[in-house]
Simulated scan of single mutants.
Amino acid sequence: MHSDRMLTLRFTVFALLFCGTCGFSGYWFNVFNHCNPPQKMVGKFCAIVLDNNYDADNNVTNRDIHYDSLFYDYDGDLCNMYKWEFVTKWTCRLGFSEEFARFMFNRFDRNEDGAVTEGDFSAPLSFPSANFLMMNFNLFKNLYCGDPKNRVNPVDRVQCAEVHELNPEDIKCP
């Protein structure tokens, strides 16, 4: 009986270690970090607006974006958002590819110092939510998916094909 328990324990440890490289750890990361991204592209764009309109006044401002950036903090450093934190948030919360997340990080890291900080948001921002939604849709559809090298990743291929079929009037959030 004792050897059966020991064998079971060894098998469990092996499975955890082995499956950590085959998606098992990703599954648990998603469960513990509340990863439940929208499946459809419209949902992803709506989640971006929802996350960046903290006060729900239908206007996305620097203040809203700064509040949202608090949810990018995985290392306890609220003043610096590093690429890995940004990529984690955009792949986990929004369901975009790692390549697109890196693309977006580079758009936010304006001074190219490897971290998104207060200095990267020097200009005041204020967008009506509908305009912010369209800006993100057009950025993904035209700027990102418009470059063939950004459609190599299987996730990007599927998402770019889906977004290619959408028209701006199809993008509506509840």
Rank of each mutant, 00 (worst) to 15 (best):
N153W: 08
E85A: 00
N52L: 12
K89R: 13
V49R: 10
F45S: 03
P148N: 00
D68H: 05
Y67R: 15
S122G: 10
G76H: 09
A130H: 13
V116T: 05
N136L: 06
T117D: 03
P154A: 08
M134K: 12
G95V: 05
Y54V: 13
G43M: 00
Y82W: 15
F100I: 01
F100G: 01
N62A: 01
C92E: 02
D57C: 06
K44G: 05
L139W: 10
Y82N: 13
V49C: 03
T117A: 06
F132C: 03
R93Y: 11
E99H: 10
N111D: 11
R102T: 15
F105H: 08
V49P: 02
N106R: 12
G114C: 03
L125G: 01
F121K: 03
Q159A: 05
F132A: 11
M41D: 11
A123K: 13
S129N: 07
F86D: 15
G43F: 05
G76D: 04
R102I: 13
R151L: 06
E99R: 06
P148I: 00
K141I: 00
G119C: 04
F96D: 04
S97C: 03
N52V: 04
H66G: 12
K141F: 00
L50C: 11
F100W: 07
L78S: 11
T61L: 06
K89W: 12
D55Y: 13
P154T: 03
A161L: 08
G76E: 02
V163I: 07
V155D: 10
H66L: 15
P154R: 00
T91Q: 06
P124Q: 13
N58W: 05
D120S: 12
T117E: 04
F132L: 03
V49L: 02
S126I: 07
I65R: 09
N142D: 11
G95H: 02
A115L: 03
M41T: 12
A130L: 09
Y54M: 15
N136Q: 07
Y144P: 05
V87P: 00
T61W: 10
I48S: 10
